[in-house]
């Protein structure tokens, strides 16, 4: 029974979550695109000479945060850069995507990227418990950060703490690569057949939480990933 649940989580649920996420994002974006444009300009002066590049740079570098809360800015930059690196690191697990050497037992960053991201999430979560942020936070803010924290922690166990054992990685980068490659090629193979051992349950937990996150994403404020640039464009005219 447990094996069957693990299979559902690691294979069919992944497809469902990804499809759900992509459709959800498309619907959300379409709803905004279909809405009427605002009847007048919302820009803030002074004018920017090149509003589009300026909006892109503004969304990526968050100059207003740097100016008004440098500590938060440092954590935000670390978090967002870390997430980009983690996406690359997950792609790099595939045998045909070699940023790190194919025979390396490590993910990109040797586990450090995930730890930095975890620390940043913990900072975002803890600051919400302090006033006045506590007063403006809603339960979804805490739960989303908690979910992200759990995903990052379980990821850390896989990619970093996994290497603490005397014999090196219990599960190697190649093991995970085989699993992801199977998913990518719709093999429907049970990853338990090739990846087994004490840490497998951590992988299942990580995948389950990531599935949840993908399913929640279109309905959450994480949608700012897609709207940060258009939003920044509005204030630049």
């Amino acid at each position: 029974m447990v094996n069957q649940i693990f299979y559902v989580i690691t294979v069919p649920m992944v497809y469902l979550a990804v499809a759900w996420c992509l459709v959800g994002i498309a619907v959300k974006v379409a709803r905004v695109v279909k809405a009427p444009a605002h009847p007048f300009t919302l820009k803030v002066f002074p004018d920017k000479d090149h509003p589009v590049p300026s909006a892109v740079w503004g969304a990526l570098s968050m100059p207003t945060v740097r100016r008004h809360n440098p500590t938060l800015w440092v954590f935000l930059i670390l978090f967002h850069l870390g997430v980009v690196l983690l996406i690359l690191a997950h792609l790099d697990l595939m045998p045909w995507f070699n940023i790190y050497p194919a025979d390396s037992p490590n993910m990109i960053g040797n586990g450090a990227v995930g730890v930095v991201v975890t620390a940043a999430i913990l900072y975002f979560l803890l600051r919400r418990f302090a006033s006045p942020l506590r007063e403006i936070s809603v339960p979804a803010d805490y739960l989303l950060l908690f979910l992200l924290f759990c995903i990052a922690m379980s990821g850390d166990i896989i990619s970093w703490a996994n290497s603490w054992s005397e014999n090196g990685f219990v599960l190697t980068k190649q093991d995970f690569g085989g699993y992801l490659n199977g998913l990518f090629h719709f093999s429907w193979d049970d990853p338990a057949a090739t990846i087994d051992g004490g840490h497998y349950v951590v992988l299942v937990t990580h995948v389950f939480l990531a599935n949840l996150f993908l399913m929640v994403l279109p309905f959450s404020k994480i949608m700012h990933t897609f709207f940060a640039i258009p939003l920044n464009k509005l204030r630049r005219g």
Partner: peptide, 8 residues
């Protein structure tokens, strides 16, 4: 839909 309630 996109306010992250960062509090800035």
């Amino acid at each position: 839909e996109n306010c992250s309630r960062c509090g800035l």
